[in-house]
């Protein structure tokens, strides 16, 4: 199996000193086009894993590689979204979406001359997540769920190869969350982008992912890995089937163990 994202025996200490590691001996492989979900107790190093995989943090030991290249500095093929949508309040929603294009090549050079094309692209994306015609609104005129949708769009606008989602739906109500599950599901199916999703919601992980990784308590490493075999496209209804419940239950067992070990 060739891995698109690979972490091999990675250890990371924040601050670069000899303090207690945030993750230790962390190994993980994600295939190209795969949807991976990562679950684990709070503070176990899930966000740290994301930062390591994207090169935002350098590991103290071990190897991080993406697309066959060793990661030494922030890689430029990622889109990220977090629990906090962090849209820039002085930009309209549309201008927020265009932000990555102002940074990433080759769009950066083309943006000025091909503005209309990019704006159309952004508007199409907004429509896909149910924000049609909201581009002119400022982020603070949007509800939390709408901001999160916009933040998802921003992470996808430059057509990244790798999408990193760190609890993107954590702050939303159950209905909005399920709606956005479907949005992500469809976007991923359409673009065949590799996704790594960190979540606390086991149902979310099982519904969306091809594979779920469980992490131990700090210092985090992968303790279990579960293929999710449900056929795609998946319907929300499968979350009410006994097979689904069984997998969620099994994963819960892993998390409980990890928490107890801490």
């Amino acid at each position: 199996m060739t891995a698109f994202v690979e972490l091999n025996e990675v250890t990371h200490v924040y601050g670069g000193g000899d303090g207690p590691p945030a993750v230790e001996g962390l190994s993980l492989k994600v295939r190209e086009g795969e949807f991976a979900a990562i679950v684990g107790p709070s503070g176990c190093g899930k966000s740290t894993l994301m930062k390591l995989a994207t090169g935002l943090q350098k590991p103290k030991a071990g190897l991080v590689a993406v697309a066959g290249q060793r990661v030494a500095e922030p890689i430029k093929i990622t889109g990220m979204a977090f629990q906090n949508p962090v849209l820039l309040p002085w930009r309209t929603t549309l201008e927020n979406l265009l932000l990555p294009l102002e940074v990433v090549q080759p769009h950066r050079q083309r943006l000025r001359a091909n503005k209309a094309e990019y704006v159309a692209r952004a508007e199409a994306l907004l429509e896909k997540v149910g924000l049609k015609g909201m581009g002119a609104k400022y982020p603070w005129e949007l509800s939390g769920g709408m901001q999160q949708r916009a933040s998802l769009c921003r992470s996808l606008i430059h057509e990244p190869k790798l999408l990193m989602l760190d609890e993107p739906f954590g702050a939303l109500d159950a209905f909005t969350r399920e709606e956005l599950w479907c949005v992500i599901r469809d976007l991923q199916a359409e673009r065949a982008v590799t996704v790594i999703l960190v979540t606390h919601d086991l149902r979310e992980a099982v519904f969306l992912a091809d594979r779920v990784f469980c992490m131990s308590a700090r210092p985090g490493k992968i303790t279990a890995e579960r293929e999710i075999g449900f056929a795609r496209p998946r319907d929300l209804e499968i979350t009410y089937t006994p097979e689904f419940a069984e997998i969620v239950h099994e994963l819960r067992g892993h998390i409980r163990q990890a928490r107890a070990a801490a």
């Binding site: 930062k51 994207t54 935002l56 890689i75 430029k76 990220m80 977090f82 990555p100 940074v103």
Partner: peptide, 14 residues
């Protein structure tokens, strides 16, 4: 600056 904002931009190679 919120660290997440910085992360989003850095991960784009800013």
């Amino acid at each position: 600056i919120e660290p997440e904002t910085e992360d989003v931009l850095k991960a784009l190679g800013a």
